[in-house]
Design a protein around this nucleic acid. Structure first.
Lengths: 152, 152
DNA sequence: GTTGAAACCGGTTGTCT
DNA sequence: AGACAACCGGTTTCAAC
């Protein structure tokens, strides 16, 4: 079942603040508690709501530096992609990794303490992978926007 | 106050699942409810925990396509950066936007329904901005990893 | 979908060690 | 700082409309 307008309002609110009480959500969308509760339960059961998490202030946990990496693999090696994927999933510095179209293979978002920590990651973990042929790194100077909320 | 080893365990758990009860967290780290409750309260007050959100399954809400965009601005215009920042923050398709070092100015993560929706966004919203000089787009073919959890 | 009620359970607080 | 116990409020389920 696709989310209707009411479901979308609920999703919008929960994507901003998942600690809102059902009572509070109900009052904001002019409904009573029962249907709101029922809708949230359904959205969870159907997997539209995937999970609930907390978002940390990355500076306050000592992760001040974000680096985007464009990675090109060595296509000669048959297993390159599989090997690379498995390795990347294990690396806690990598928050996002996608195969992309264009003149390189992967786009990575890496988060580390500082430039020296990135150097360690780059030298000993990322470029140490056999499958990697080339890496271009883009250091984030200023984060303008970061949200996990999808417009529904 | 910096988070100690116990705080880090709590943060790790809450970043995976913020619906865990304090009782459950307490039992997993071999503590009673009181100190866990007290530590979470402090982590929130200090802003180390920024917020609680729900994460949606983007495919199930009809946002199947992610595109990364490298944007170069027209440096001739003095107000380019400010104008661009303000405009981007308003665009719900843009989940992430950062100023980066290198041969372009911004890295964007855009999420839309499909290629046609991206075309609409590209033509009428992003490239419509006066400050924009050049855009390179990279379509995501396969998402290997996506997490909001920072290793602490 | 609404209201109201009841049971349950987790968050919250205070006290004691 | 952690353990224990009591209270309060929200969640959850149910019945009736």
């Amino acid at each position: 079942m696709l989310p209707d307008a009411t479901d979308r309002k609920i999703l919008e609110l929960l994507q901003q603040d998942s600690q809102l009480t059902i009572k509070e959500i109900a009052s904001r969308i002019n409904l009573s508690v029962t249907p709101v509760h029922e809708r949230i339960r359904k959205l969870q059961k159907e997997g539209i709501i995937d999970k609930y998490v907390c978002i940390l202030n990355r500076r306050k946990v000592g992760k001040a530096l974000i680096v985007y990496c464009n990675v090109t693999l060595d296509k000669q090696r048959r297993e390159s992609f599989e090997d690379f994927n498995k390795a990347i999933i294990q690396m806690s510095e990598v928050l996002e990794c996608s195969v992309v179209s264009g003149n390189f293979d992967y786009m990575l978002k890496v988060i580390v303490a500082d430039a020296e920590a990135f150097n360690q990651f780059y030298q000993h973990k990322l470029s140490a992978l056999n499958s990697v042929l080339h890496i271009s790194s883009y250091f984030v100077i200023s984060e303008i926007k970061y949200t996990t909320a999808i417009a529904v």
